[in-house]
């Protein structure tokens, strides 16, 4: 089915929250997924895979333990939303030296955060993992590498550094998102966790209506 970008962002933000992310990180997840879709990449499927793979894992086990040396997570695998947000929070550090991360789930989801950094420090950002090289400018993304490598479930290592050269396939902007029903249903299941079961009290009082509208 074809979705608007606003729908994608809303659904994925809710799904991320339903999966246990803080509201602030859920906002990042929604924005990141939307940006990937705008470049024609299936960010929604990547996020659905991420939330499924990490479901039940304590969120604190997915965060970077520290931002010195190689970034690792206590649980052994980094969440790309948490790591990406942390990376963009440390944009100034990245301007000085590269950052290395070990074992990142759904590394494609790091790309939008790299773009935020590119915009903040005014440099091209170079992201590499397992046969993939992505170069991210303030308004263009170039990709070199195979589709399966780009959409890998886990990257054994990710290197993020300021770069200059722009090579590879330039991703074209797209205004609409084609999401498979399976992906939509998976995200919908996570989003559903944010909805309170209805009670009779909430049905009437919660919405504040209960009057006749036949007047």
């Amino acid at each position: 089915m074809i979705w608007s970008m606003n729908e994608i962002e809303t659904l994925t933000k809710k799904a991320a929250r339903g999966a246990g992310m803080s509201w602030g990180l859920a906002e990042e997840a929604g924005k990141a997924t939307r940006r990937l879709q705008e470049w024609g990449l299936d960010g929604a499927a990547a996020l659905a895979d991420l939330l499924t793979a990490t479901d039940g894992t304590a969120r604190s086990d997915l965060l970077p333990l520290a931002v010195s040396g190689v970034w690792t997570a206590r649980g052994g695998m980094l969440c790309p939303i948490a790591a990406g947000a942390c990376l963009s929070d440390h944009a100034a550090v990245l301007a000085e030296h590269p950052v290395e991360m070990a074992r990142v789930a759904q590394p494609m989801l790091l790309i939008p955060f790299a773009q935020t950094i590119a915009q903040q420090i005014g440099r091209v950002i170079d992201l590499r993992w397992d046969g993939v090289r992505v170069q991210i400018g303030t308004d263009a993304v170039h990709v070199a590498g195979t589709e399966p490598a780009l959409c890998a479930a886990v990257a054994t290592g990710v290197r993020c550094s300021p770069g200059q050269m722009v090579t590879g396939r330039k991703l074209a902007f797209t205004a609409r998102a084609a999401i498979t029903p399976v992906t939509a249903a998976r995200l919908g299941t996570f989003a559903h966790r944010t909805y309170a079961p209805a009670t009779d009290e909430s049905r009437l009082a919660g919405a504040g209506a209960g009057l006749s509208d036949n007047d």
Binding site: S22, E28, P64, C86, D89
Partner: peptide
């Protein structure tokens, strides 16, 4: 920098913004 605070307190991220 607030970045270090946010790493330990992701629950405050929306308010920092």
């Amino acid at each position: 920098p607030i970045a270090a605070f946010l790493l330990r307190h992701p629950e405050h991220r929306h308010v920092v913004r």
